[in-house]
Design a protein around this nucleic acid. Structure first.
Lengths: 129, 129
DNA sequence: CTCTCTGCAAAACATTTGCAGTCGG
DNA sequence: CCGACTGCAAATGTTTTGCAGAGAG
């Protein structure tokens, strides 16, 4: 059920288009709203379904903030990376942290943990809004 | 509203007791269920209210997983730290990562970000369940 | 044609809130 | 006593799902 063939429908393309045009993380609700303004009448349920499919295919990243709303963003690179997100304007920069990766692995191994993975997000206020 | 005096009620003590007895992260729902089994009839709303109060007072940590359920855990130390969580048994180890802290600050500054904060959680499979 | 995908509305959840009554200090 | 705290139920907000119909291949 991972890469089962997926149809190229109008609404799927519309969702991907919005993601493409958005450099920052966007919530499903916001994405849906944007589609409506753009004239594309895509159902909210479809937006969720499409988003979940994309996440499953590892084509988008998910970010869970404390407000209970999940944010989605198209992955620029398929490889593992982190994000530097502006608290105010939402601008996002993809960052790599080689040192962090190995540190996490090391610490985990030290405690007898294997199959290590991790999540790391950096937040801040950017100067040029 | 931060450290406004807080009353020591039976239900508050019950919630803290469960947290005390739980070394791992636990969801509000699970905590509530555990209270019920224990005979303490504490309302779910009260559990949430108490948990939020504790978070506000920085006495517990919050962790948002991808299942949309927030997990809570009593802080061992008041200072900033991260967690190494076992995917299978939920065992949690508090870890410190001085290098990560400074790295995050540096990278953020490099991109013109200030007021930097971050979240970092490490997951893995621990050998001794 | 067939079988997946979509829309809509209802359902399912987690969490919050309004309010009257309770109880700690 | 007084006001903060609680319980319950209703309200909220997000995400999921059931089902009949639409459209891609």
């Amino acid at each position: 059920m991972a890469d089962t063939e997926r149809r190229a429908t109008k609404q799927r393309r519309a969702v991907e288009q919005v993601l493409q045009d958005t450099d920052d993380f966007i919530s499903a609700q916001a994405l849906h709203a944007r589609l409506r303004e753009a004239g594309d009448a895509v159902g909210l349920a479809t937006v969720y379904r499409t988003l979940n499919a994309l996440v499953e295919d590892a084509r988008v990243d998910t970010l869970r903030l404390d407000d209970g709303e999940a944010r989605y963003r198209l992955c620029a690179t398929a490889q593992h990376h982190h994000h530097l997100v502006c608290r105010d304007c939402g601008r996002t920069v993809e960052i790599a942290g080689p040192a962090v990766e190995s540190w996490a692995d090391a610490v985990a191994a030290e405690h007898g943990f294997t199959e290590v993975s991790h999540t790391l997000e950096v937040f801040g206020t950017c100067d040029r809004h």
